[in-house]
């Protein structure tokens, strides 16, 4: 099954992403939806900007999804859509959706994909606060 992977500067249509993974062979669809939170480490966030190295991000995302297919061979469909550019509070930043025959594997595979994405996919978050800006996680 070819996963649907994309990095977009347009608002993410969550229902459309879910529709790409739905199949008659799967009894479970599990989705993680990451949204922009109003604070970061206690500092109020006004908005943020995601920068992406697209070609590498998609390559690494492909590796993450391939690992998921190895760990859960029953995985039917996978979609990952990540936003880039400027986002406001509550905007959808990322959607991971998986379809499996039964629910247990759908939770596990979805969590694995979002957790691993955060470690390896080349996307950077620049947060804007009332009193300045910061590249998230850049410094110890």
């Amino acid at each position: 099954m070819t996963p649907h992977l994309s990095i977009t500067d347009q608002a993410i249509d969550v229902a459309a992403v879910l529709a790409t993974v739905q199949t008659e062979a799967a009894g479970a669809v599990n989705a993680f939806i990451g949204t922009v939170r109003n604070q970061s480490g206690g500092r109020p966030v006004r908005r943020l900007h995601y920068e992406s190295y697209d070609s590498m991000a998609l390559t690494q995302l492909g590796h993450v999804v391939a690992q998921a297919y190895e760990k859960w061979p029953m995985l039917q469909q996978v979609a990952v859509v990540h936003r880039k550019g400027t986002l406001n509070l509550s905007d959808v930043a990322v959607v991971v959706a998986v379809a499996t025959p039964h629910r247990a594997e759908s939770f596990a595979a979805c969590q694995f994909i979002i957790d691993t994405l955060k470690q390896v996919v080349t996307i950077w978050k620049h947060e804007e606060y009332e009193d300045g800006t910061e590249w998230v996680a850049a410094h110890p």
């Binding site: 991000a57 990540h82 990322v94 994405l117 080349t122 996307i123 950077w124």
Partner: peptide
């Protein structure tokens, strides 16, 4: 080669 510096990532 296509070479890039990769600072700590923060997607998701």
């Amino acid at each position: 080669d296509e070479i890039a510096l990769i600072p700590p990532v923060a997607g998701g």
